[in-house]
C-alpha cells in the first residue's frame, strides 16, 4: 500500500493537524512503509473469528444515569488557554 501526497494531506485535514507542504512527501513515504508492514495480516485466516472488543473477561459495568459529580466550573476551566464568564473562548464560528 502506498499513499500519495494528496492522500496524506487529506488524512492530516481529517485529523486536524497542519502539516507543512514540504513534509508531505517524506510523511507519505513513512506512512506507506508502515502500511506495507501491516499488510502481512492478510496472511492470517480470520474467517469466523470475532474481532476483539474487550480483552478482559468481563462485561462493562452499568450504572444509573444520574448526576454524581460537578459544581466546580472554575477548576474545570482553570487550564483553559482562554476563558471568560465561565466559558471557554474559541474563534467565532457563526458570522
Amino acid at each position: 500500500m502506498s499513499l500519495d501526497k494528496a492522500t496524506v494531506a487529506k488524512i492530516a485535514h481529517l485529523a486536524r493537524i497542519k502539516v507543512p507542504d514540504g513534509e508531505l512527501e517524506s510523511l507519505a513515504g513513512e506512512l506507506s512503509q508502515i502500511l506495507t508492514f501491516v499488510e502481512q495480516l492478510n496472511e492470517v485466516d480470520t474467517k469466523d473469528v470475532p474481532p476483539m472488543t474487550s480483552v478482559a473477561a468481563q462485561k462493562l459495568r452499568r450504572r444509573k444515569d444520574e448526576v454524581t459529580d460537578g459544581g466546580y466550573a472554575p477548576q474545570v476551566l482553570s487550564n483553559g488557554p482562554e476563558t471568560a464568564e465561565g466559558f471557554y473562548v474559541v474563534p467565532k464560528v457563526v458570522e
Partner: peptide, 23 residues
C-alpha cells in the same frame, strides 16, 4: 484541541486554530 488545556496556536477560524495547535 487548544480549547480546554495546554497549547493554543491561534488561527483565523476554529478549524485553523485546531490545525495550527495540533500541527
Amino acid at each position: 484541541d487548544g480549547v480546554r488545556y495546554g497549547l493554543r496556536v491561534e488561527g483565523g477560524s476554529l478549524s485553523d486554530m485546531y490545525e495550527n495547535t495540533r500541527g
